[in-house]
Simulated scan of single mutants.
Amino acid sequence: MHPQLESIFNEAENRYLKVEELDPLDQYVTSLPDRLQTYRVLRDRETTIMQAVADSLVTAFPNEKHERLERSIKHAMLVLRYAAMGMLLEDEAFIQNRLKGWLAETVKAYNTYDIERKLYTLLDQQLTNFLNSQQASLLQPMLNLAQATLLGEDQEEEPLTASALGW
């Protein structure tokens, strides 16, 4: 659940919510249909999206071992699922808690930074084929957070932003 909403509900246990406490709840509820639709698109089109990404990644890295590419693609599928759930919940902590430690360490251990950067560029390109601008704006902050976590804060390249993608 959205952390701010959870806090509001906990604080208002023995009283009615104040007007200013209802605003975040209203905003979340109002955006929920768009979030649900975006989640459904991602769920229903994941295979198509990721197959196109995988095909392009193989083309971009023709001499790379299949196992390295496959590992990165599997991780990207997980990240996309986590980003979709984080977007649905409107909860950045969800992404951070799911990805903290293991994913960045895996990228570091296998030294797949170049593959990951290209993969996420390709993923962003594919998402433009399946999501409208409203849906992309809901998902993109979660993907940006995941990319920052994945590639580490000490990397010289910044994660892709919605404005850089023309969204």
Results as ranks from 00 to 15, higher is better:
residue 1 M to H: 09
residue 5 L to W: 03
residue 5 L to I: 15
residue 10 N to S: 13
residue 11 E to G: 02
residue 11 E to A: 14
residue 13 E to S: 14
residue 15 R to N: 06
residue 16 Y to K: 12
residue 16 Y to T: 06
residue 32 L to Y: 13
residue 33 P to K: 12
residue 35 R to F: 08
residue 37 Q to S: 15
residue 40 R to E: 14
residue 42 L to V: 03
residue 42 L to W: 01
residue 43 R to H: 06
residue 43 R to T: 08
residue 47 T to S: 13
residue 52 A to N: 15
residue 53 V to P: 06
residue 55 D to V: 13
residue 55 D to I: 07
residue 56 S to L: 02
residue 56 S to H: 11
residue 61 F to D: 03
residue 65 K to D: 11
residue 65 K to N: 12
residue 67 E to I: 09
residue 70 E to W: 04
residue 74 K to C: 09
residue 78 L to H: 10
residue 81 R to C: 04
residue 84 A to H: 05
residue 85 M to C: 06
residue 85 M to V: 14
residue 89 L to E: 09
residue 92 E to W: 00
residue 99 L to I: 04
residue 102 W to R: 08
residue 105 E to L: 11
residue 114 D to F: 02
residue 115 I to P: 04
residue 115 I to Q: 01
residue 117 R to Q: 09
residue 128 T to E: 12
residue 130 F to T: 02
residue 136 A to L: 13
residue 136 A to F: 14
residue 138 L to S: 02
residue 141 P to T: 05
residue 145 L to Y: 01
residue 145 L to C: 13
residue 146 A to K: 08
residue 147 Q to L: 07
residue 149 T to C: 10
residue 150 L to N: 05
residue 151 L to S: 05
residue 152 G to F: 05
residue 159 P to A: 11
residue 159 P to V: 08
residue 160 L to N: 09
residue 162 A to D: 03
residue 164 A to Q: 14
residue 165 L to I: 02
residue 165 L to D: 05
